[in-house]
């Protein structure tokens, strides 16, 4: 619920032309989505409902605000069940991120911590399909060709960097989808079966082509993202994983806010 203040704030800031705050949510209009990675043999296309998604990955500053108000999730206090020992290990202190990195995406956060942050904001992690659907929209908005998309993604993997993030002050669109962090999603652990009728596949890279709706560079890049993330344990806290949150849209919110967002 807290986050709805953020949504209201976004509308206000758009009107007054003050800067868009990093990680404020933007609206993703629902529609048909053809998953690039097929998990159901019988289903080539799925319906995605409209939802809100943070414009950028969550920043160090925002995560610091969260842990200050949720001491259970501070580095000194987090339960061993929820991390692998590396939680926020790049922060110099329990309640401080490195100097000058307020707007960097927060990293070294486990899947558990990411979910808890989003829940505290009245949201949740996006589903894998929601994130990928948003990614397709982003590519269209930004005119990113399939080849460029694949190139960008593989370039990031060859040299992952989670630098400072910037957004266009008037932006109402997503940014930093591929150039900062790979992102946790709710159902990030792949389960590559087709019900009881399944070919024996481990989901390793060599299996990729057999799961792809069409064997293009872009789909292979996407599969690579799925796969590299799926290999993590939910406790994994690494320099390359961050997250952004999603929020359900109630019908009255769509009616009143839809056009402006």
């Amino acid at each position: 619920m807290v986050k709805w203040l953020g949504v209201a704030g976004l509308m206000f800031s758009t009107l007054t032309a003050s800067p868009l705050v990093l990680s404020d949510p933007v609206r993703i209009n629902g529609g048909e989505f053809e998953p690039p990675v097929l998990l159901d043999k019988e289903r080539l296309s799925i319906e995605i409902n409209s939802f809100m998604l943070d414009a950028t990955p969550v920043t160090n500053q925002l995560f610091l605000d969260f842990v200050k108000s949720h001491p259970k999730w501070q580095r000194d206090n987090i339960a061993a069940l929820f991390h692998d020992g590396n939680y926020l290990k790049h922060w110099p202190q329990n309640n401080a991120y490195p100097d000058g990195q307020a707007d960097h995406p927060v990293t070294y956060v486990s899947w558990f911590a990411a979910r808890e942050y989003c829940a505290a904001k009245g949201g949740r992690l996006p589903s894998l399909n929601e994130w990928e659907y948003a990614s397709v929209q982003y590519r269209q908005q930004q005119n990113i060709s399939d080849d460029d998309y694949a190139r960008n993604l593989f370039a990031w993997y060859s040299q992952p960097k989670s630098d400072e993030q910037r957004v266009n002050v008037n932006a109402t669109e997503l940014s930093h989808m591929y150039d900062r962090v790979n992102e946790w999603v709710e159902d990030y652990q792949l389960l590559l079966t087709n019900g009881d009728d399944v070919d024996l596949l481990s989901g390793s890279c060599g299996d990729g082509a057999r799961f792809l709706s069409s064997f293009t560079k872009a789909n292979y890049a996407t599969f690579f993202r799925y796969q590299s993330r799926s290999d993590y344990a939910p406790q994994s806290s690494t320099s390359t994983m961050g997250f952004r949150c999603a929020y359900d849209i109630s019908s009255d919110t769509i009616a009143s806010n839809g056009d402006q967002l």
Partner: peptide
């Protein structure tokens, strides 16, 4: 068991 083998491997 065959169906679940890959999952369990993961």
């Amino acid at each position: 068991l065959l169906v679940l083998a890959p999952t369990l491997a993961q």
